[in-house]
Amino acid sequence: MAITMHVDIVSAEESVFSGTASFVLARSSDGELGVMPRHVPLLAQLQPGEVMLRDEFDEEHFYYASGGLIEVQPHVVTVLADTASRARDLDEAAAQQAKKRAEQAIENRSGDMDYARAQAELVEAAAQLRTIQTLRRRKGQG
């Protein structure tokens, strides 16, 4: 059995995942971040995107986090997400719609405040779509 670490994924509303994993992949502000057990302590900001973790049976699980923080200790990884969900719970149609809406808002912008929010929404919707596509690609391979 591979060496494992404890992983918790929590959002402000609920605990999404709690268990062991041998590898965690997240999207931090500086790019993709792969964590294996006995990683050096690390605190990083998360970008909207998928969080992938591989359990001790080499199965991959996908989650979606809309930003937040990740804390890495040698044997404990904690993902403090703003909102998190299992990737298969994501709604592709809704994400497409949100993206379209945000793009429209950016095109005919009215105020700075709206523009900033629309941009944040666009980033989030795009990240959700990317997560869905990654998940589908993996499924196609498997």
């Binding site: 931090s28 502000s29 500086d30 690390l42 605190l43 990083a44 900001q45 923080l69």
Partner: peptide
Amino acid sequence: GWDYVYEPSAPEVLDDLLRRYVES
């Protein structure tokens, strides 16, 4: 004497973390 590795930088991450802490 250990410390975290911060991404992108210590002030930004700590600011974010502590703000979230108070909010929570």
